[in-house]
Amino acid sequence: MDKLCTLTEHHCRNLLTGYGWPRDMEIAFRLSYSQGDGAAFYGHLTCEDLSRILEQQVSRGELRKAECRRLVRRIEASDTVLYLERNAFGHRYAHAGCIRYVWRDGDCAPDNDVAGEIESLIRSDVEALCRQMACDGYLLQEAMLPSSEPVVFQRNTANFVVRVEETEDVYCGDDDAEFRNELIALILDKGACYRPLAISVVSTTSGNTMGTAWAGDALRLPGQPVRAWFDRHWLTEATEEARQTINALTQAFSTFVKTH
């Protein structure tokens, strides 16, 4: 889960940046397919932040340049800060409806009409961002948590079964931003999955697991053959552990035979 949370938060911050918002907003998300679940974010917007956000809306064709210039002049004259805070629902849920908008800190806050216009434009960004964060968050979650059929494949020999199955997160590395961005793009655009795997060597006689290896970075694309993504080094680790287990059992049993 640590890796999933890290990647989801990183993506949410990328979305904020793309809309001209500060990257350091507080991110909150609850993604358990329950009522009230989703994503939200909190923090404050300075005059500079508000101006940048409105200019981004102009670049997306959502606001006319003349309207943007008029509002930016009023924002700069007001020297105030718009806070996005949790309302009564924000402590239990995470969605756009959990946010309240409060003007503070300015010696000359914008008048009600201008404040209402700005809040309306900011609210439209918030609603779009919260929807996108939640939608993408669910896709990331589905791509990184074990599926309903966790066994990816297995191979049978005369005495053993080699089984590869999805498992919970076994490692959370300090991946750099470039890697995270590439991984997010593969998941959201290509439908890739990035699930940790357990590679086990199981005795068909006793049913005991003789050796296990862990792969915390198994990236798979839809329709990709096993040979394209499976690292045989994982299998080598599992079989080596199985060999050591079998040798230890053999030695223990030989000692048992000698003493009896």
Rank of each mutant, 00 (worst) to 15 (best):
A238D: 08
T236I: 12
S206C: 13
R220M: 07
T236G: 07
T239P: 04
P222V: 07
A213L: 07
P225I: 02
R243V: 15
P222S: 07
M210V: 13
A213W: 00
L219W: 05
Q244L: 13
A215H: 02
D231C: 06
D217R: 00
Q244W: 13
G216Q: 05
A213E: 09
R227W: 07
E240Q: 13
D231P: 03
W234H: 05
T236F: 04
G223Y: 11
L219M: 10
E237R: 07
L221G: 02
A242I: 11
V226I: 14
A228H: 08
D217T: 00
W229P: 02
Q244K: 15
D231W: 02
E240F: 12
A215W: 00
L221R: 10
W229K: 02
V226T: 11
L235A: 06
P222H: 07
V226C: 02
W214F: 13
T239S: 06
A228D: 06
T239G: 04
A228L: 10
A242L: 13
E240T: 15
G216D: 10
N208F: 14
G223I: 07
D231R: 04
L221F: 12
A215G: 12
M210K: 13
G211A: 09
D231M: 05
E241L: 15
P225S: 09
R232K: 11
A228W: 05
W214S: 08
Q224M: 09
Q224F: 04
M210W: 12
A228S: 09
E241Q: 15
N208S: 14
G211H: 09
S206Y: 12
W214T: 08
G223V: 09
R220P: 06
R243Y: 13
E240M: 15
A238N: 03
A218L: 04
W214A: 09
T239I: 08
F230Y: 09
G211I: 04
T209A: 12
A242M: 12
Q224G: 05
Q244V: 14
G223E: 08
F230I: 08
L235N: 01
G211Y: 06
Q224C: 05
E240I: 12
A238G: 09
L221N: 04
L235F: 05
L221A: 06
W229E: 01
G207F: 13
T212H: 01
